[in-house]
Design a protein around this nucleic acid. Structure first.
Ligand SMILES: NC(=O)c1ccc[n+]([C@@H]2O[C@H](COP(=O)([O-])OP(=O)(O)OC[C@H]3O[C@@H](n4cnc5c(N)ncnc54)[C@H](O)[C@@H]3O)[C@@H](O)[C@H]2O)c1
Ligand SMILES: NC(=O)c1ccc[n+]([C@@H]2O[C@H](COP(=O)([O-])OP(=O)(O)OC[C@H]3O[C@@H](n4cnc5c(N)ncnc54)[C@H](O)[C@@H]3O)[C@@H](O)[C@H]2O)c1
Lengths: 210, 210
DNA sequence: TTTTTTTTGCGATTTTTTTCACAAAAAATA
DNA sequence: TATTTTTTGTGAAAAAAATCGCAAAAAAAA
């Protein structure tokens, strides 16, 4: 397949930029506007579109509404995506309070924890005992989960999720997850993001001296 | 330079794996152990080390303590890295409560907000008025900042940070930041991470049918 | 109507990244 | 001591990703 992680991330970025342009009243866009907006080259934009079979109009650029529709379809935004969270701690509570997911068609359906003091059955996003996870996943046909438990619990939680039928995990715990072949695990490791930043700040600092 | 974002992220992963192995009592490690631990190939591990001038012992693998030291030096972990946060909202409060950063030599020094109701001068990590940002950055020679403000405020906050002398930003807001040449901006976009996951779950789902 | 200008689409080329493959070193074994 | 085994280190090869370059289409101008 043509798609790799970076190309899909770029599609998400194009989508964001298009939403912004649309809300500013723009109707069409050229590849170099998009390139500007997301920080890549115009030929990268066109190549990405070409690989996904998206075409525009010579000299006319791309119709924003049409382009958005296609990107949204590719990114699975034609339907609401239900997501659960395991581990109702600090990260989870930031995510649950965030209003931006719903706007993007991502619905946090429920959170789960082992600690009974965290349970809140009547919240808008209920926090439920781990024991109910399987039922909720099955009844709602949920395929995506977020892991926000301490690192030591991450693998066992992942195993439970796979058993329940989850196919994709976004893992905040700094632990590599062993997963079945038909499942995907993506990682958000904030320490590593900061280390990365520190490295490149140091590099720039050193090259400046020369 | 040899380094790109992915290779540095891999170094962070090796470091994590090594810490774990060390705490389990291991003293040496082979490239294929590390490959296993982080999910890449053994030759990738050796090539990465080779590019950073790290060498081991033929037939003897790598000395964990020695290797860790070198990785930590490359990743700037030989000194404590002070970091500030702008926007003391949901994300920021999750980050401030997290104990893992200090263990990794990353010290959240202060947070800043424009909303006076958020100020907490006496917290362990104080939440201060934006006006004090410049002074704190200068006095502590801070180079790294995290942006956790609403998207509309992100660019103006970034400009303020650059003016104060910040060289690297980790941006949680879903907005591209225009930055000077000698500064780095990395992005954490959780919507995009979830979209990515959804895309690849859909792809796997479709290929399975065939 | 003809010419010029602009912008796409995509094959070709270049660059970057990953994997391969094997000599060399060193330990283990015979 | 000689042979076998194991593992590194790194050029060479392959694969993947990004960029280039230009024909073709279409709008705008002449
Ligand atoms: N908070 C941050 O800013 C931050 C930053 C980087 C990484 N992380 C990582 O994200 C993860 C979550 O961090 P946090 O700060 O939200 O942690 P937290 O301690 O606030 O929350 C963890 C929650 O998981 C629950 N839990 C523990 N074991 C469980 C299990 N087996 N099943 C279900 N629930 C379980 C706990 O009861 C708790 O409510 C951790 O792995 C952490 O390393 C967090
Ligand atoms: N919370 C999440 O889970 C989540 C998920 C994805 C993305 N994000 C993004 O992260 C950012 C922060 O999200 P949040 O949920 O923490 O938001 P929040 O609304 O809880 O907090 C934002 C804080 O920024 C402060 N602020 C506003 N303008 C400011 C300015 N100019 N200078 C300084 N402070 C200012 C506000 O007073 C508030 O305290 C947003 O851009 C959001 O889109 C958050």
């Amino acid at each position: 397949m043509v798609a790799n992680r970076n190309s899909i991330i770029r599609l998400s970025r194009y989508k964001n930029a298009l939403n912004r342009l649309q809300s500013l009243g723009f109707v069409k866009v050229f590849s170099d506007n998009l390139a500007d907006a997301v920080g890549c080259t115009a030929s990268q934009v066109r190549k990405d579109f070409s690989l996904f079979g998206i075409s525009g109009n010579k000299k006319g650029g791309y119709q924003i509404d049409n382009l958005l529709e296609k990107l949204q379809y590719i990114l699975g935004k034609d339907k609401i995506q239900k997501v659960i969270i395991v581990g109702a701690g600090n990260i989870a509570s930031a995510l649950m309070k965030y209003k931006g997911f719903e706007k993007e068609g991502i619905r946090l359906t429920a959170a789960f924890d082992i600690d009974p003091s965290k349970f809140k059955k009547n919240n808008e996003i209920p926090i439920l005992p781990l024991e109910e996870l399987k039922t909720v996943v099955k009844e709602n046909q949920i395929r995506i989960a977020i892991i926000a438990v301490p690192d030591v619990a991450a693998q066992q939680v992942a195993d439970l999720l796979f058993e329940a039928g989850i196919k994709g995990i976004l893992n905040f715990a700094p632990t590599r997850i062993k997963s079945p072949d038909d499942c995907v695990v993506n990682y958000v490791n904030l320490e590593h993001e900061l280390e990365n930043l520190i490295y490149f700040v140091n590099v720039l600092d050193k090259t400046k001296v020369k």
